[in-house]
């Protein structure tokens, strides 16, 4: 029973990051800088929402209390969400969106590559299915980092600002929560210490090619995995959950 609770929380932690980033990206729908990028961003948003559904469907199944995947997405409050802080940061402009995506994708790719080897078969299957999608996400976002970083003076400056501003949320990605430690130990979850060096190597390589400066290590904002969020998450949930909160139990 105890193990199921741990797995349930772990599934929320993974699903919430995908859900909130998917929601953020979907804000671009109809507002992308060009039609092609508009569609690319919403495609990625849909991939992430699909992954969330896989995690949440499995979560409610092992919880066995009759809740649905929608209940998990629409009827939890800020402190119940376990997503990392990076994904709830606002879109601001295209450079911010690309930077946020690049950091998350780079992490996500390495994370899923490990999660494929989970001793939990269901989780391993979700990971290997998601990995194909995320392989494309990394390709998309890192190419845009290079294009904008190594582009015009203006695009370079905007990209650098975004990298600098979001840097304080990057450390949390590979920082172990108590739950991460337990799940890595019992071989169901991923050992974040193992992927950390590769993660920073990957980021360094891309930023260097993009002629961007890697920010100096500073203190990190953390707490998302334990339900402590920045002020932005509340606004995201207000919008995302509006329908269900206003018309409880409505279906369509």
């Amino acid at each position: 029973m105890e193990n199921n609770k741990l797995l349930f929380d772990y599934l929320l932690q993974l699903g919430d990051s995908s859900l909130i980033l998917g929601q953020r990206l979907s804000e671009w729908c109809g507002h992308g800088p060009i039609l092609e990028v508009d569609m690319a961003l919403t495609n990625i948003a849909l991939d992430l929402l699909g992954q969330t559904r896989n995690y949440f469907q499995y979560a409610v199944e092992i919880e066995g209390k009759g809740r649905t995947e929608d209940d998990l997405a629409m009827l939890r409050d800020v402190s119940d969400f376990k997503n990392v802080l990076l994904v709830e940061q606002p879109n601001e402009d295209f450079a911010y969106t690309v930077a946020r995506q690049f950091f998350f994708d780079s992490f996500h790719y390495l994370f899923l590559s490990e999660l494929q080897h989970s001793t939990n078969e269901q989780l391993a299957a979700i990971a290997s299915k998601s990995l194909k999608e995320v392989t494309y996400h990394v390709r998309f976002s890192s190419q845009w980092v290079k294009r904008l970083g190594d582009g015009t003076e203006e695009s370079h400056q905007k990209m650098q600002n975004a990298i600098d501003d979001l840097w304080m949320y990057v450390g949390e990605l590979c920082e172990e929560s108590e739950l991460d430690k337990i799940m890595s130990k019992n071989k169901i979850g991923v050992d974040l210490n193992k992927i950390r060096p590769n993660f920073y190597q990957e980021i360094n390589d891309v930023l260097q090619e993009a002629t961007l400066k890697i920010p100096e290590d500073n203190w990190n904002q953390t707490g998302g995995k334990n339900g402590k969020h920045t002020e932005h998450l509340g606004f995201i949930l207000t919008e995302m959950q509006w329908m269900q909160r206003t018309y409880p139990n409505m279906e369509w």
Partner: peptide
């Protein structure tokens, strides 16, 4: 698209 790489990706997405 600006170059062939971007053209391929855009084609994939669109």
């Amino acid at each position: 698209a600006t170059d062939e790489k971007m053209a391929l990706e855009n084609a994939r997405d669109v």
